[in-house]
Design a binder for these strands. Sequence first.
RNA 1: GCCGGCGUAGCUCAGUUGGUAGAGCAGCUGAUUCGUAAUCAGCAGGUCGUCCGUUCAAUCCGGAUCGCCGGCUCCA
Length: 643
Amino acid sequence: MNQVTITLPDGSTKQIPAGAPVKAVAEAISPRLADAAYVAYVDDTLVDLTYPLAKDAAVRIVTNKNPEALEVYRHSTAHLLAAAVTALFPKVQCGIGPPIEDGFYYDFVVERPFVPEDLEAIEKKMKELAQSDFIYERQLWPRQEAIDFFTKRGEPLKVQLIEEKTAGQPHVSVYTIKDKDTFVDFCVGPHVPSTGRLKAFKLTSTSNAYWKGDAKNAPMQRVYGTAFFSQKDLDEHLTRIEEAKKRDHRRVGKELGLFTFHPWAPGATFWLPKGTTLYNSLSNYMRGVLIPAGYQEVKAPIVFNKALWQTSGHWDYYQDNMFLVKSSDDEEMGLKPMNCPGHFLLFGSEVRSYRDLPLRFHEQTPLHRNEASGTLSGLTRVRQFSQDDGHCFVMQEQIASEVEELIKLVQRVYSDFGLSYAAKLSTRPDKFLGEVATWDDAEAGLRRALESAQQPYTLNAGDGTFYGPKIDFDITDALGRKWQCGTIQLDYQMPERFDLKYIGADNAEHRPVVIHRAIFGSLERFIGILVEHFAGAFPLWLAPVQAIVLPIADRHLDYAGEVVAALKAAGLKAELDDRQEKVNYKIREAQLQKIPYMLVVGDREAAEKAVAVRSRAKGDLGARPLEQFVTNALAEVRSKALS
RNA sequence: GCCGGCGUAGCUCAGUUGGUAGAGCAGCUGAUUCGUAAUCAGCAGGUCGUCCGUUCAAUCCGGAUCGCCGGCUCCA
């Protein structure tokens, strides 16, 4: 019998019969490992455990400890979903079903939208199929045979996929789940060995989607689900989702009285007093960061004549997203959706010297974008918002150092809030303006800057804007969603359009490069993220109410008033709860309002000019002199302590 | 904008298989003056998102519309 020599990850070798599946290797190493294993690398290619070893190879078994195993597992669960839907809705057309960050989905063309009862039925069917422990079998079919098969089965989408993805290949791989009505899907795999491996999954929601994400194509029903190796992991995940919902900024914002909305101004925030305080804290915090970094704050107009938007290109390319207004004498105007053009006009308002560069403008005036109604959501997607927007006008050779400083600012700001984030570098797209050499130079500058700032990043090749490469910063919120907040974009195009120039050392005119940059992104979105990040329990330096004074009885009102006055005089945001309620009641309310410090004052405190301090997080801390509390609190504010 | 769901008191939610609605909390009034997560009693509060239609009668059924929610697309 032919033997195959395989090399295991530890360097040792093993002989197995030719044609035996990878599973045999796993079992040879350890029977228990085979059970925990789902896939393997053979010569660096991820394959099923059923993959037959026909030649000498290096084999690395992937167990459920490896992240790629979970993806395979979820991908297989998506197939199980498609098999179940096909069984229950024979006329269905299957689209694609990939694993995603928290689970998987599968798109279907189906006669009517799914309802929750359908999900239950589908999930039940999936469990049956899992129980039957059907084999996921990989088969190589002649390409034309596969096309004929899916054509005959009425799956033009699959045919389209095969035609697009496998042009020129003689064979295509399909996977079957051996049901009595064998489910076949075009797929490169790999998959888990059998449906019985899929032990913990749940369908979570349905929604509308389009084939290839294009609304011009067939509408489809997307079914979302999640899957884990064990029921325990699944339950923990579902619990985490529930917990995360409790800190949804829309809910917390209402509970804490931060902001509200009205149907007559959809997508525009009403900032309540506490929310306004928070907003101003952040706004001023950013000034405190940017002004020492060499920025000058400016305020440009909000309404501009159409001529500006024609110059910037917005009139032609962005008009659908703009609020247009007409003056009483019929002049066409537009509300600014971004600050850039205003800053360009400001730059051009004087003769600029190379000695003035880098020149940095910062602006927080409101922007308006007429976002499609269906995209609005709480504070994270609104129609009126302010950015911590800024534009740096630099010489080409200043790009790397300017960007490096910017990255350091981003790092500092996000760490002040304890936020986790990731950077991505987006490079020259297929359609671009300018010279390749300039782009290469700029991209090299961004890379150098990322490396000097020791900022890890991922590369999004070809994802830059048409006018320049960029670095984006995504913050992860409490629900695990990523939000683009910070951005650093190079722009070679707008300086041309606005004919921006500076006089160089050679006494000739030169074109500056513009760096569009923001750190919060939008104040609104950033606050939404912060609310969820802190679950409303803001650190002292951000809390809209930092301390609340709780008199025990009416006779303590005078002293309580003195305490509040002293706190306010020291610059602390303090309130008085002078209602005729028991102290328990007041504490409960203050605790629910997540106020960092509750200062109980009664006979003893009034006599000693003291306050009994209760911390939101640590409970009763006992009494201390008022002055001492003020000193400590001010120090805590200055340190921007996070807890 | 597209698909689906939802819209009842300030908030959270019951309810009416068509005969104009209730609870808790919040609010107001009174009593209580209290030491670290809810004192007691009473009162008041809603043309059931809006408009049109069907009907003797609509909060309920149908249509439209606005808003919100979950996604898609887009995006800070």
